[in-house]
Simulated assay, not measured.
Amino acid sequence: MENARLLHAIIETAIDGIITIDSRGKMESINPAALKLFGYTAEEVMGHNISMLMPEPEQSAHDHYLEHYQQTREKHIIGKGREVKGLRKDGSTFPFRLAVSEVQYQDRKIYTGFIHDLSREKEAEERLRDYAAELENLVEERTKSLKKTVTALREAKEEVSLSLEKEKELNQMKSRFVSMASHEFRTPLSSVQLSASLIEKYAEPYENPQIAKHVHKIKNAVGNLTTILNDFLSLERLEAGRVEPAFHEFDLVKLAEEITEEMQMIAKQDQNIIYQHTGLQSVVMLDQNLLKNCMINLINNAIKYSGENTFIEFNTEINERQCIVTIKDNGIGIPDTDQKHLFQPFFRAHNTGSIPGTGLGLNIVLRYAGLMNGEVQFESKINKGTTFILSFNK
């Protein structure tokens, strides 16, 4: 008796709905949670067929489903079940997860249905989908706006260069424009990136591939825009004379290994960065931040302009006279006619196609290397790859 009272108390206070029916589908018991979900009183449903709680077409098909269940003994295990719709007394419907178990009671069989309301989960999923779509539209608008700004900047540079007599005046105008663009776009881009990360975090329990797809697109778009903005800011600081190298000793091998690990994460499928150091020494006296920027820029180019299933060689060497950094790929290469213009600002080789880029990276590498009294050399053959070499005298 004590066990029976305990079981009754558990059923009566359960959060999920619990309904038992006989072999003909008539309801024999229903707990308060189920009554609240469907909006009925116990007197209104007891003895009636369970199909009254189902919308069409499930209502008409219920007897067939119950007969099939009895014949095949296909059981929906508690905790898995299947997603169905319920019909409330007021005519509205709601989604719930139904788990059914068969119980042998005395000389007959009864069926117990466990009902878990999914209304809040579905509403949350819908809000997340709407929010992801809204963010995607926002990023698309920002992308168009920033592209227009970049295009305007390039057009402004071409027009001003024809009318101004001195390069200094052109740089001053460009500097003011880039500073304004940085202020206007950096904060909203950071907000979009943070919001996308939060959506990704909160959407994990739903395992919805569409949300993950759109969040990935948002992050990629923001990453591309941030790279463009950083290139323009670096150029602006260089031309304004605000970049001063800070020489200090650091472990070149440790820095290179960290960069290799970082860049491997953004490499294409089956694209491997192979790092190797030559020499007994590992400590150099250079500006670590400027050198890191040069390495990342060159490796990023190797990743972009090489295909999948390729190797990127990343080598460092310290000998008695020099510190040498080499990045070699087997990508699309640089046409001979374009090589003499390669380090000019905004210049991009004619075979880059739709591969994203600003045409500023190599100009920045050349100037950063120059600030550290270094040199940049390269060799390239079309469709066979490119090798860049940074060298710094000790």
Rank of each mutant, 00 (worst) to 15 (best):
E236W: 05
N373F: 03
I78V: 12
R129K: 12
I50K: 01
G17T: 05
H76S: 09
I355A: 11
E320M: 11
Q377F: 06
A132Q: 06
L360I: 06
Y275L: 07
V192H: 01
N300M: 06
L286R: 01
A152G: 14
A42P: 01
P32F: 03
V253E: 06
N171D: 10
E56H: 11
R237H: 10
N289R: 09
Q71T: 11
D107I: 03
L87D: 02
M265K: 12
E317V: 05
L252I: 02
N289P: 00
K384Q: 15
S60Y: 04
R88K: 15
H277P: 00
R5D: 14
S92Q: 14
K109G: 04
I10Y: 10
K148G: 13
G370W: 01
M295T: 01
E167N: 09
L66K: 07
F314V: 05
K144N: 15
V84T: 11
V178L: 00
A156K: 02
L37F: 09
K219I: 11
R129C: 01
E204H: 09
L98M: 12
K75Q: 11
F388L: 04
L37K: 03
V283D: 10
G357L: 04
L162G: 07
A133K: 15
S145R: 09
N220I: 09
Q104S: 12
